[in-house]
């Protein structure tokens, strides 16, 4: 399903922001909020995994329903999961498209990676 990937802050994200390697943070930052109708169309339920793909790559997230999110939009809190698929292009402004990335959302069986694994995927080593 074609979507616009939107990102932003949330209280849970803010409270866990200094514990990025924790499981709590993983579950907050890897949640992908979708309109319930979109969940239905995708044939998935709260807690199922989705593969979200953009020209910059893909990431596996956990689908969550949210009434407030518009149709064909997915909302992910700011953080390493969303950034895994956001392009680093800034169109000469310094600012990437954190709130208007086109994305494809599809159901998947793949598992959600940890923040550490995401960092390892780009050459990092977990402390």
């Amino acid at each position: 399903m074609r979507c616009i990937l939107n990102t932003g802050r949330s209280v849970p994200q803010g409270t866990a922001v200094e514990h990025k390697l924790s499981d709590v943070y993983r579950s907050i930052a890897s949640a992908c909020f979708l309109n319930p109708v979109d969940l239905m169309i995708l044939g998935i339920e709260d807690g199922d995994r989705v593969r979200v793909t953009t020209p910059a790559g893909y990431v596996i997230l956990t689908a969550r329903p949210a009434e407030g999110v518009a149709r064909n939009e997915c909302f992910v809190t700011i953080g390493p999961y969303a950034n895994h698929i956001i392009s680093s292009e800034t169109q000469g402004t310094g600012m990437p498209d954190f709130k208007s990335q086109d994305a494809d959302v599809e159901p998947t069986e793949e598992a959600v990676k940890s923040v550490g694994e995401l960092m390892e995927a780009i050459g990092g080593v977990r402390p």
């Binding site: 910059a56 390493p80 698929i85 392009s87 990437p96 780009i122 050459g123």
Partner: peptide, 17 residues
């Protein structure tokens, strides 16, 4: 700050190099 988490992947990846 934490650009590893807050920058797009391609930008963050350079930090590891």
């Amino acid at each position: 700050s934490d650009p590893g988490a807050n920058f797009p992947r391609a930008a963050a990846a350079h930090l590891a190099k």
